[in-house]
């Protein structure tokens, strides 16, 4: 299926990706070509076929509800772009 420019702008917003205005046309064309290839799926008869999420159809293992991790906050925050007093900093959200 072919996308139009508005579709691409909306998808980019949903994915929180900045796409420059100058790239919208080329992006629209390439995404449409990929979706055109994907369209072949629609012809496949899949009535009564169970969707497959995992190759060996395994389910999640359960474990005891106990603490397994120690505190790594300082170590993990040492590679963050901006922190203060153990918190991650982002631009102000609430006035």
């Amino acid at each position: 299926m072919a996308l139009d420019k508005e579709d691409v702008v909306k998808i980019a917003h949903l994915a929180r990706l900045q796409v420059a205005d100058s790239e919208i046309d080329a992006t629209t064309e390439r995404l449409s070509s990929i979706l055109g290839m994907i369209e072949q799926l629609q012809a496949a008869p899949t009535d009564g076929i169970e969707p497959m999420a995992h190759p060996t159809d395994a389910v999640q293992r359960l474990r005891e509800d106990v603490v397994t991790e120690s505190n790594h906050r300082d170590q993990y925050q040492s590679i963050a772009p901006a922190t203060e007093d153990g918190l991650y900093l982002v631009p102000q959200v609430i006035e």
Binding site: L41, Q42, A44, T46, I49, E50, P51, M52, A53
Partner: peptide, 10 residues
Amino acid sequence: KAQKVRRLIK
């Protein structure tokens, strides 16, 4: 649909 086709492939 893709997950169903995935099972056909398997």
